[in-house]
Nucleic acid binder design. Sequence first.
DNA 1: CCAAAAGTGTTGAACTTACACCCATGA
DNA 2: TCATGGGTGTAAGTTCAACACTTTTGG
Lengths: 250, 250
Amino acid sequence: MNKTLYNTLIELSPICKKDYLSSISVDCVVFGFYNDKLKVLLIQLDGLDAWGLPGGYILKEEDLNKAANRILEERTGAKDIFLNQFKSFGKTNRSENVFKDCPDDLWHKQRYISVAFYALIDYHKVTPVVDKYSAACEWKDVDNLPDFMMDHQTIFESALLQLRKDLNYKPVGLNLLPEKFTMPELQRLYEAILNKELNRGNFYRRMKRYGILNKLDETRKGGAHKAPDLYQFDKEAYKCSLENGLSEIW
Amino acid sequence: MNKTLYNTLIELSPICKKDYLSSISVDCVVFGFYNDKLKVLLIQLDGLDAWGLPGGYILKEEDLNKAANRILEERTGAKDIFLNQFKSFGKTNRSENVFKDCPDDLWHKQRYISVAFYALIDYHKVTPVVDKYSAACEWKDVDNLPDFMMDHQTIFESALLQLRKDLNYKPVGLNLLPEKFTMPELQRLYEAILNKELNRGNFYRRMKRYGILNKLDETRKGGAHKAPDLYQFDKEAYKCSLENGLSEIW
DNA sequence: CCAAAAGTGTTGAACTTACACCCATGA
DNA sequence: TCATGGGTGTAAGTTCAACACTTTTGG
């Protein structure tokens, strides 16, 4: 840890102690989609090599979900992000050595239970914000990730697994794709999330069966080949299938 | 609130403050199965009408999962319970008026973020324990529940929904049924969880296809009709399907 | 016209659903 | 023996994976 971060921590510690709930934090795994790649928004603390998930603390009079939204808005500039709380992490040793050189009464050095959210957000609507603690805030490819600090690798992997599981019964795409998109683009999003190739014909049929897509009278011109049809999500049907699920067995 | 509970709270407050993490609690939705009914273990605080979920706090040097296990063991006498952390609850107003007559610095009156677990446990292995705070600890039918305190109704419903969702890709039964059981018994467990009737033949085939059952050379004698075959779970296959899931779409 | 990608059709296997049928048992 | 519940069979419809075929586009 370098001196800048150390001084920032010492300076902010009493303020945090006053404003925030102790022992509890929020971490966000922010997914985006760009250039056929699934991305995740990571930050780098000043003077540390390892990267971490954007996170923060909960104000003493603030709802948990509100806190997650606020933290993400501060970090991305985007409002009303799709957020899904998926698990809390509370091993005693999870923060390990990051603050080992700091005084024991430093706010940030205490033990935290972290409530983790994953977020789906349009890559183009995000302006990564570098805050007081951090030296960088960048999108990273999920298949080419840097070293993580603390247990953030575990949290990230848990988020990706949860997202993949959610694909089984929730629609995904409204928050990750632009307004208009083609079937092949949607398919590549699914392939990026699942990290495996899907059969084109079967994917088309399944998506159509879900009934959440409106085919537009336009095609995506400009490619070197046949112009694919453009689609939009049917907002109502999408919302309905988000709430009621796409395929239950029982 | 009656005087007994009030005095207990005042007495325990400083001890809690010393031993536990502040602002964070654990609540458990404990499911059991008895007499073809899905049950949930509830407690009643001394002098209150409404019922609540068994819960507790996290020791300052205790892992989150350990805490949940400890809390349940204290309450049920059972060890190594199947626990599934499914969500955390953190609305600012969630504890509402329960402690409104108590001093503001009472440990129990502070605002909590509660990490909720659901537990599946053999009804016969539980001995409900009434602790210092509570007047009662009893199994209740999930289709005939009393009034809940705080947001525990929400937490309970969320747990049941999660359990139903988990039925889609996890086996259930090892923790809720006795060692040996019949197909109709297993089916009635599923029906109790889902609160809907299932087709017998199709249920049989699905369970067999999962490959987690061993058919025994015994039948359940004593009923008024044809003696049904007895089954056991194949522990290895069960564990494997718990980890890898039973049916993924993609 | 050609290559390549988009869109659609086909086919057999697997699974679901909804029944029907037979079997075993105690009353 | 008979009512009842347990176990299995079957036929129609649906979904699936895999693959082939047709269409559309820019070069």
